[in-house]
Design a binder for these strands. Structure first.
Lengths: 209, 209, 209, 209
DNA sequence: CACTAAGCGAGACGGTACGTCATGTCTTTCT
DNA sequence: AGAAAGACATGACGTACCGTCTCGCTTAGTG
């Protein structure tokens, strides 16, 4: 029985090790050089790979950096600290810690900038990074509902709109604080921010009745 | 009064018209080409100016774009719509409208990205754009205090911290909504966002007593 | 007689058809693309053969083209037109006709150029092309001696030196006329050239006594 | 009075030193590397010049090498050795000496090879090298006519045809001897060749009456 | 009214990275 | 073991832009 749908194409298969080496080299170069001085030739050299191998897999600097940065955010976990507020503070602190790393901040804003003129890149960012982390908002809400901190789910449309708003507010505030204002998103700041967010959402939910 | 007649350096004075032409050409090129394809040679040509003239005034692409984009945000005004919520909604909508323009979003994110590795650029952004618009938060709060919607000013430290938080939350959420999530920051969204923000701030103020 | 049944090496024997297909494809590519734009990948594709197959038989572009071009010159025949002058004119015209073909001129000069720095290639050219066609000079002289147009053979050293000179003069003049001067080596030119050559050789033989 | 018709174009003028340095570097690279391993990047480096500067003046490797090699042949002089035969031997020996230099032989055949498919290159070779050296044939004949070794000039058409034939025979034979047969065109060979050529021409002239 | 000093348009210059292409080798699977 | 397919390391290609420079010319103030 041919249970695996592997096409078994002719010719030498692509090296799986090369992909990993390239993404790691990309992050390394981002740390050392930053976005604007990162060159694909240099990444290829660091990865011990030819430039052609790199171009065979990615169409350019932007696509490559999206993939390299996306892996960083996969480390995010929703901690169970006993209360909704504490859970949120925990995940926001993790998010802030990732954003504080040079390989994340330098590359992330640059691809967002480019994505304003490149539909395909925008989709790639949304698929690889944004939508993938929205799970945290949904998990957190579900857990809070289980604890009785939030009312049980209402209509899905309302749900989605609120989840999107939460995501934009959390990610936006942390990014702006870190990259634009240039101050660290430390515990104190996160506590204040979370308080405002949760009280505001609670108030809006009450008013929305 | 500006009584001083300028140091009066020897030699031919710099053309004032050139500066304006260059900044306008920069915005035009941002609209047509976006950040990454904008070249200083092209900007110079559009402005009817030699490349040397451009380099005599700005040290590079990043500095030039900061100045070109900064002018856009100077059009922001705090409208008097009768209530704090309405005032905020008004100014957020203006902000969203500017961010929706291609010359703003493409350039702004790019210089922010670069500023993560360039202290001087970070300062220039803060000076020319961020701090300059923080006036809107302060004006809005003062007006609301005059109306009695907010309690009179307490200590300055507390003040600043809250003003910074508000600024990060507003700017961050609108930027993230517009550029990352890719949805328009329209009236409905702004109303929901403002409601959460104000209720959250009020609740936090009450809790903070 | 070739009675030996070949060493009979283990494994799949090499395809004989492949060799012919590759040489034909090489000439075809020379016609269409010329030497400098001919690529081995393209030749392999045209021949319906993998690049590896090609490299198993030839060590590179130069060697391959030598073999492809050498076959063209094997078509040269010494015609029997009744007199030495007419015989020479006949063979020179054939030579000129081959040199006029694009697959010959483009490739031939290129390998000669490369052979100035590559001893092995120089030998290959001499073996496969030059020495092989020197037979025409020897045949022609023998036939003329049979007819009594030339005196019977003298010492072998003298012979060889004269044969070499004739070959250099004939091949050189035709090549230079065709490729450098860019004019056709037509009947009129060949008649004039042959006349000078034969009268010169006769005079030199008389003076050399 | 504006006697010099110098247009005085705007902008920085091209560096004359760069041209000379590039051509010298090209010859140096031809000696060390030969045609096929010569790269324009390397030439630029040797000349202490940017690749762009090189491409601003020449459209590619072939054009550049034509100019670099052409300068070599400008050193040819028609010596006055007292007789036509001696004069010819002298100039042929000079020609052979130049062709024996690696920077000449490697490059010359390569550009001739390429010129079979490139009309512009063919013209450039003819203009810069071939036609320029045809002067030697004409000078030599004029001098011999002055000495009474040759009859005074007849019709110009006949003249040109004979001059072309002489040029093709001399250049062709020396090139073929040197590059293809791979033997040096030394004094002995040149004497033999010149004898055949002159006796042949004399005989043909007599027969052509 | 010359003289000086800087600004200015034009375009050449030394660099650096780009993204593509060809070379010759290798690693697959199939014959 | 040969062959087809195609990935791979290497390195040159020709182009584009960067930021600097060197021209000749213009436009002020100053002596």
């Amino acid at each position: 029985m041919e249970s695996q749908p592997v096409p078994a194409r002719p010719g030498r298969p692509r090296s799986a090790a090369a992909d990993a080496a390239i993404l790691a080299a990309t992050r390394e170069a981002l740390v050392e050089l930053g976005w604007s001085k990162l060159t694909l030739g240099d990444v290829a050299t660091r990865a011990g790979v030819a430039k052609t191998t790199l171009y065979r897999r990615w169409s350019g600097k932007h696509e490559l950096v999206v993939d390299a940065v996306a892996e960083l955010f996969d480390a995010l976990r929703l901690p169970d600290r006993g209360s909704l507020a504490a859970d949120i503070e925990g995940v926001v602190l993790q998010f802030a810690a990732i954003l504080a790393r040079p390989e994340a901040k330098s590359g992330l804003m640059a691809v967002v900038a480019e994505s304003t003129r490149d539909e395909a890149l925008r989709d790639r960012i949304r698929t690889s990074i944004v939508d993938r982390q929205k799970r945290l908002v949904l998990e957190g809400r579900a857990r809070a509902q289980g604890r009785g901190e939030l009312p049980p789910p209402s209509g899905p449309a309302e749900s989605d709109r609120t989840a999107d708003l939460i995501f934009d507010m959390v990610a936006g505030a942390v990014v702006h604080r870190t990259l634009v204002s240039g101050h660290p998103a430390d515990e104190e700041w996160v506590r204040g921010f979370t308080q405002v967010l949760l009280l505001g959402l609670a108030g809006a939910a009450a008013a929305g009745d």
